[in-house]
Computed example of a mutant assay.
Amino acid sequence: MRTIFILYLFTLSAVSFAQERSVNVNGNNYHVFVKGFENRAANAPAIIFENGMGVDLGNWKKILDQVSSFAPVFAYDRAGIGKTDKVFKMPTTKFVAENLHDILKSLKIAPPYILVGHSLGGVYIRSFAGFYPNEISGLVFIDPADFTETKNDWNAIFRTMGIPEKKIDEMLYNRLYQQSTGIDSTNFGPWSERQVLNDLRKTDFSEISKLPLPNVPVYFLVGGKFEVPPAQRSKDYDQEAFFHIKNSSNMERWKKLMYSSGKGGMLIYLTNAGHYIHWDDPRAVINSIKLLVESLKE
């Protein structure tokens, strides 16, 4: 009878672990999704997903189940996003990294981790990896906000396009320094995340560049499809030309980042996928993560 009871508890625990749930960490309720941990082997990496700006974990629904078939997965809503409580603190890279670390610890999801970040999530996983480098097995950036970019990099694209310096200065000012004042408490999560990214750009991401890069494989998946509708495009410059030049510029810096890791990596440019690659081409993302997982077994 005792053996049966123990087996029943194990089964119940495994089933309850593979679902969406709420976990209270640091006095706030975080909405999380966990799956596949009941069969996790010793030292096998867990796949940790970090969403883009203002986006909830449903953003990963096209790939979570398939990835969980070969590795345990964890996804969550950051503070003020989706079903997670609002936390009226700015989501700086340090704040988000420490919160995520505490959430993983509370769920007993031990390292090593493969971090997968989309858009702003790429900025956050680069920071997490810098704060906890010994806990990381790999990094997968999905069309990330470019944390290697400087203001001069941005301006250089416009110079290549022949935009006058006065106009370049005006556009840079409008991008970084002309913003609404006051806190939007209704949408504090998305609002505050945008402010954090804006502040990082003002300093050329200095607080990230000084963090160590773990000696792990680094993968980049880049969307090459220009998606801005004609009616919404800039009247000041050819936005589609800017998009393609910027992608090329970004990838040159990202290749240097991959080489600097010591473990190499992979860069995939997907011409038929836009910013949300995991929606436009989920198979490419799933296969890339699987390739990384398999490479760590060698």
Rank of each mutant, 00 (worst) to 15 (best):
E193I: 09
E193G: 05
E193L: 07
E193H: 05
R194Y: 03
Q195T: 09
Q195K: 13
Q195R: 15
L197D: 07
L197V: 15
L197G: 05
L197R: 12
L197K: 08
N198H: 12
N198K: 14
N198W: 03
D199E: 11
L200Y: 06
L200F: 02
K202V: 10
T203N: 03
T203C: 04
D204F: 08
D204L: 07
F205S: 08
F205Y: 15
S206M: 07
E207I: 01
E207L: 01
I208W: 00
S209H: 12
S209W: 00
K210S: 12
L211K: 02
P212M: 03
L213Q: 13
L213Y: 02
L213C: 06
L213P: 08
P214G: 11
P214E: 10
V216L: 02
V216F: 03
V216D: 04
P217G: 13
V218R: 10
F220P: 03
L221S: 12
G223E: 07
G224I: 01
G224Y: 01
K225T: 04
F226A: 14
F226G: 13
E227G: 12
E227V: 09
P230F: 00
P230Q: 02
A231N: 00
A231H: 03
A231K: 03
Q232H: 04
R233N: 08
S234C: 05
D236C: 04
Y237S: 08
D238N: 15
Q239S: 15
E240P: 10
E240R: 10
A241D: 11
A241C: 00
F243Y: 15
H244M: 09
H244T: 06
H244F: 15
H244Y: 15
H244P: 10
I245S: 06
I245A: 04
I245E: 11
N247H: 10
N247Q: 14
N247G: 10
N247W: 09
N250L: 05
M251T: 03
M251G: 00
E252S: 08
E252C: 04
E252T: 14
R253Y: 05
W254A: 03
L257E: 11
M258D: 01
S260W: 08
S260P: 09
S261C: 12
S261N: 14
G262W: 13
G262E: 08
G262A: 06
